[in-house]
Design a protein around this nucleic acid. Sequence first.
DNA 1: GATCCGTGGCG
DNA 2: TCGCCAAGGAT
Length: 361
Amino acid sequence: MLQTLPAPHAPKLLSWYDRHHRELPWRVSPAAAKAGKRADPYHVWLSEVMLQQTTVQAVKSYFAKFLTLWPKVTDLAAAPVEDVMAAWAGLGYYARARNLKKCAEAVAAKHGGVFPDTEEGLRALPGIGGYTSAAIAAIAFNRQSAVMDGNVERVISRLHAIDAPLPGSKPLMKAKVAELTPSDRPGDFAQAMMDLGATICTPKRPTCALCPFRDDCLAFAEHDPESFPVKAAKKEKPVRFGAAFVAVTPEGEALLKRRIESGLLGGMTEVPTTAWTSRVDGGTTADHAPFPAGWEACGTVTHVFTHFELRLSVFRALTEKVAVDDGWWEPVTNLETQALPTVMKKAIAQAIPRAFEKHPN
DNA sequence: GATCCGTGGCG
DNA sequence: TCGCCAAGGAT
């Protein structure tokens, strides 16, 4: 079959981007970019890490909060890691926060507080992988790097009607992205591809009528863009069970502890729990409470993680302030300042329904 | 390459 | 209601 000459994809997309780009707090407009203005590498890095597997809407308030708390990367490098974890609480994938802090420290200590301006230099930093290094290099430094995230995978798989399943087809798609990426305005091109995927070439019901690639898109020509990208079948989530114990003193203090640095919810704050096992009888009673008290069952909470579902039986007790060697007693009015992941907030709210109401200062 | 890592919104 | 999915990285 004869191969047609490559259509001028990049200019079409950039022209679309000039008119339809999203305006986001960490961006500079295409007009400003054409005049040579670049986004602050610290802002680009912070937003890119927050945006890993996370929606723009969820990121916006966290991005603003972090810039208020730590205006420069050197401020973040000097911050207590507990403060960073607490500020990140609720955003998920907490290894990102631990690596964010490590990365800021590395930039401050090894690079004089200035981000490396190459893909390779960025890739060597904690929490910066193949996607993020390419994105920062393109967006902050206008490097001609091939940027491929989930949006770009969708656009590319449709444009070329790639029917090999992800993730095996990633190298092929990456090659197609590299082929498409222009030397002129590579940063805007990367952002344009992601904007196209986020607003036009959406997973469901793409708006092909408005797409600058409509006349070039093989999936559109085949009348079935929604069937791309093809993905490998996923396995079902197992269910795990456990119990959570919310102890409160008459003075209104709750017992908290810190999880180990690695693994699930690493370094975050929790209430005492049993181990989370696949068996119902592994910890749904008060038998394994941290200490004897008048433990009272107050229902269950369910939380779905990436690879399993957790059902926690919640117990509460009004107790005296017993001495604990691996935790501390925190005023309930102060819980909002703690690095509590969502599942722990659910458990505490189950035991103390008004725990997370706003308190007057 | 496969597995582990959160969360909230949406159709 | 519930499966899907969102600017992935580390091991």
